[in-house]
Amino acid sequence: MKSTLTLLSLSLSLSNFAGAQLSIEPSWGSESFASVADRRFTSTSTNFNFAPSDGGAGSLSSATSLTESRGSSSGFSVLDASNGLSVPLIRTYASTNSGNWAAFGSSVAIEGYTFNGSAPKTFTLDASLTGLVSNIDNDFAGNFATLSIWSPSGEFFPPIATRTAGPDDGFFFSSSESSYLEFGFNQLDTLRLEQNGLNDDDVLSGSLSWTMEPGETVYLWASGRSAVYGPDSIADARNTLTASFQDSTGLSSLSGGVVPEPSTSLLGLLSLAVLFRRKR
């Protein structure tokens, strides 16, 4: 258990170091991360924001995929406006071959919403995590998702003292959720879904709710992660983390999201992990 906790801490630190970005403008975007390593993280190979774009602030989509002798991992996220209002869609995957290995795949997407109504209104966002796990040996492995709604009101300290450009609310893009607490933003609601194989859940679901005033802007932070430890383990969330509004009347997306469902080529990229996940 101690070694597992150490590995989890190291992996999260590596992911935040590689992925966390502070950028005043734009405040929405997408990025992905993949890693395969020895269980104690004595060696690792990583792939970060591979395609179709560099990922990060201002990117409507990002994807990464990594396959080697120890295992495979992948991540994909997109601000999907195929049904109108842009919402994050996230897919992640991780698997190990025979041996004491570890693999991680993760993605983060952030979207902002402005309310153009004439009176206060409460919004509800429904989310579901669909996937499977196999041969998972502890609580820290499996498929995980976090969605949180943030209001940019509050005391804000720019990460660079001389930086003045950007929106008045000062909200920034970051792949680390804790950044927003550190900079004084208000978390209006949060939802965490954990598919660790303990309850044999194929689909997990929940909702976020918050109230907006006319002209107000809020930000949706969505993260998906697949993690495995030890030999011949699989955490497969490529059937995706999805979210949809019960009633989005009066809302508009800051990104102007125009990205449709993932293309066949991108889904093929993430499917490579299945073909090569075990070295027989």
Rank of each mutant, 00 (worst) to 15 (best):
residue 53 S to M: 06
residue 85 L to F: 10
residue 161 A to Q: 06
residue 7 L to Q: 08
residue 159 P to H: 05
residue 273 A to W: 01
residue 225 R to G: 00
residue 192 R to E: 14
residue 256 G to C: 07
residue 6 T to C: 05
residue 99 G to Q: 04
residue 146 T to A: 09
residue 180 Y to N: 06
residue 3 S to D: 14
residue 131 G to D: 05
residue 232 D to E: 15
residue 179 S to E: 13
residue 153 S to T: 14
residue 193 L to F: 06
residue 163 R to L: 06
residue 64 T to V: 09
residue 2 K to W: 07
residue 219 Y to M: 01
residue 228 V to W: 03
residue 96 T to V: 07
residue 49 N to G: 13
residue 74 S to M: 11
residue 15 S to Y: 04
residue 279 K to V: 14
residue 201 D to K: 15
residue 151 S to G: 11
residue 180 Y to W: 12
residue 53 S to P: 08
residue 81 A to W: 01
residue 142 G to L: 10
residue 233 S to T: 15
residue 279 K to P: 00
residue 62 S to I: 07
residue 265 S to T: 13
residue 4 T to I: 13
residue 167 P to N: 04
residue 153 S to Y: 05
residue 51 A to W: 04
residue 117 G to D: 07
residue 241 L to I: 15
residue 159 P to C: 05
residue 221 W to Q: 02
residue 65 S to P: 00
residue 278 R to C: 09
residue 47 N to T: 03
residue 126 D to I: 02
residue 272 L to G: 01
residue 101 W to G: 04
residue 87 V to E: 03
residue 160 I to A: 11
residue 118 S to A: 11
residue 159 P to K: 09
residue 144 F to A: 00
residue 55 G to Q: 06
residue 49 N to H: 09
residue 269 L to R: 10
residue 263 S to A: 13
residue 246 Q to L: 15
residue 189 D to C: 03
residue 158 P to Q: 02
residue 144 F to P: 06
residue 35 S to K: 12
residue 62 S to L: 03
residue 20 A to D: 02
residue 115 F to M: 01
residue 5 L to T: 04
